[in-house]
Simulated assay, not measured.
Amino acid sequence: MINRRHVLRGSGIAAGAAALGLAGAGISPASAAGQPSPPTFLPLPDSVKPLPVNADGYRLERVGRNGYVLIYQYVQSVFVVTRTGVVLVDAPPLTSEVLPAAIASVTNKPVTHFFYTHSHADHVAGVTNYPRATRIAHRDTATLLTLHNDPSRPKPQVVINEDHKVLYIGGEEIHVVYPGANHESGNILVHFPAQGLTAMSDVVMPGWAPYRAWGNADYLPGILAAHDAILGTDFTTYVGGHIYRTGTRAEVKQSREFFLDFWTTTQKTLGNISLPEIQASLAEPLNGWAAQKVWIDRIAQSVMSEMIDRWGTKIAAVDTFTADCAGAAAVSILTDAPVDFP
């Protein structure tokens, strides 16, 4: 399955919300001076706020005996120190200065192996800092990296074709699981059983609502399969690739519940808002794009309102990208979702 997302582009949060007229997006009225006030949003729960960082601005968490999670600003990376070297999962370019220093702070062993969770540059374009590492990726990611032809994301030397592959590197047992296309074709989870550690980028942001349009996911129904694959591993610490903390099993389950609620709410709303009635009400009914826009925007408003009511105090940022996610879910339901999903 070939990727249909590349670079995330979009207007600002406030502008997008204003265009949809969304209650709950919290756009403040113009100030007395005639300048727009900063947009306001629901407060973040304390459970998702950043934890303390070191003098270099990053947080390094030890997981198990020899696993580590680097958290720097809003990106994350995982590495495990084995008998023969360091196994690294993702290298966001934002961490190009701090990640080598974090590794060196716990071991003098070199990075010998690198796992691409998927092809997106925000997670992996720092791999060239480790030129001697053997690069490993799923076959779909290898295909996309070839198409990208980006020197900062070189092709892997080892390509995994199986849906579940067990590797042994430096005495460390490593499970690579591919549940099918999800956030991106080829997006894998990497599980280190001895450390109780599972990493899968851009599927679950523990304690947070999804990013804009589910991060422009390749295949939205695959997001549910990815949740199930994560929960199918025996982990105590989950790493989602973004935001300020690692996650727990309970938070992955919560994210799964949110996805199901979101999907079924969108399905219901699709049936409750009539596209033909909207089209007939337009000054130019033959403008199908305009009819679709009004229809999807109304669906988005309704879904956003319901999700804020049910989830706004439970997880972070339900009032930010939910409308975009609802639009993406509506299109997926109409075009590529399996019959009777979920």
Results as ranks from 00 to 15, higher is better:
H6N: 08
R9I: 14
G12V: 00
I13V: 06
A17F: 07
A25F: 04
P29T: 15
P29V: 13
P29G: 13
A33W: 03
P36C: 07
F41N: 00
L44G: 06
K49Q: 09
A55Y: 13
D56N: 15
Y58P: 05
G67A: 00
V69Y: 02
L70A: 02
Y72P: 10
V75M: 13
V75T: 15
S77M: 01
S77E: 05
V81G: 00
V89C: 03
V89T: 02
D90H: 05
A91C: 15
A91P: 15
P92D: 09
V98I: 08
P100S: 09
A101Y: 04
S105Q: 12
K109Y: 04
P110H: 10
H118N: 13
A121D: 04
G126Y: 00
P131W: 11
L147I: 08
N149I: 11
R153I: 11
R153V: 09
I160K: 12
I160F: 12
E162H: 05
G170W: 01
E172S: 10
E173Q: 10
V176A: 09
H183R: 13
H183L: 08
G186S: 09
N187M: 03
L189S: 10
V190G: 04
G196D: 04
L197V: 10
D202A: 08
D202W: 09
M205K: 03
G207N: 07
W208G: 03
A209I: 01
P210G: 07
R212G: 05
W214Q: 11
D218W: 01
A225S: 14
A225P: 01
A226F: 03
H227Q: 13
D228K: 11
F235D: 01
F235H: 01
G241H: 03
H242W: 02
I243P: 01
G247Y: 00
F259A: 05
L260Y: 15
D261T: 05
T264W: 04
T266I: 01
G271P: 00
E277Q: 09
Q279Y: 09
A280P: 01
A280I: 01
P285S: 14
N287S: 15
G288D: 12
I299P: 06
A300I: 06
V303K: 02
M304V: 05
E306M: 13
M307Q: 08
R310L: 14
R310Q: 15
W311L: 06
G312R: 12
G312N: 08
I315R: 08
A317L: 04
A317F: 06
D319Q: 07
A323W: 14
A330D: 01
A330M: 00
D336P: 01
P338S: 12
F341N: 08
